[in-house]
Design a protein around this nucleic acid. Structure first.
Lengths: 109, 109
DNA sequence: TTATTTAATTGCAATATTACGATTAATATT
DNA sequence: AATATTAATCGTAATATTGCAATTAAATAA
């Protein structure tokens, strides 16, 4: 079916999966790292930096924006993208809660 | 093409994306949370707990195992799964490095 | 007004993912 | 040996993702 049965899972599990999914492509990882590095990149800069076609980058930017992880500011014909710091921190808390689960010592296997 | 152009990205970016991708489905998040909670689950337990069909759970377990995040121990006709703690810690370091990037104060947008 | 620039959108081909029924493999039980 | 139990594998349908050429939209510059 190619479709996750989200109704069987908790909101928290679905939220974790949604954030993780958007990080599940190296182009989006690269875009975010570049935005952390430069802090305000035009779409064209990202196209040059990353080397995928402009529509492809634009599509990845859209997904990041939909999840609220980046903001886009229109400046004339350009659009300046940057990290949405507030939401990044919120996302980080959700992900850390998942990654930082207590690891007990007793190894079962 | 449905295929990520991994050769354009750094090993680190591809590694982050690979880990994130496996967390990008709520069933795999749920499996991992259950393994942290119970610490040694049989495949059948996970099928009952999560409510997807046995082949589906088996497939998700395979992906988690391929990435080294879980171990499976054969006990008769059953297989007991648990977290691979060593690799979980390694994965966490990679992901934290990505999530914990310095957030400067100056907001560009 | 007519280019020009920049980025979003559309449409599509190739590939990947998700889910599960049916089957198989391996072990345990009778 | 025959049966039962458990989980992996196979095959397949439905859907999602990735990438880009072509086009469009919107703003600026000439």
């Amino acid at each position: 079916m190619g479709l996750a049965k989200t109704e069987m899972f908790t909101d928290q599990q679905n939220e974790i999966a949604l954030f993780a999914k958007v990080f599940g492509h190296p182009a989006r990882v690269a875009i975010l790292q570049q935005l952390f590095k430069i802090d305000g990149c035009y779409c064209g800069d990202l196209v040059n930096e990353i080397g995928l076609a402009q529509p492809t980058i634009s599509q990845h930017l859209k997904e990041l924006k939909q999840l609220g992880l980046i903001k886009g500011n229109v400046e004339g014909t350009s659009v300046c993208y940057c990290i949405n710091r507030e939401n990044w921190i919120k996302m980080k808390q959700v992900m850390l809660q998942f990654l930082d689960q207590d690891i007990s010592e007793n190894d079962c296997c």
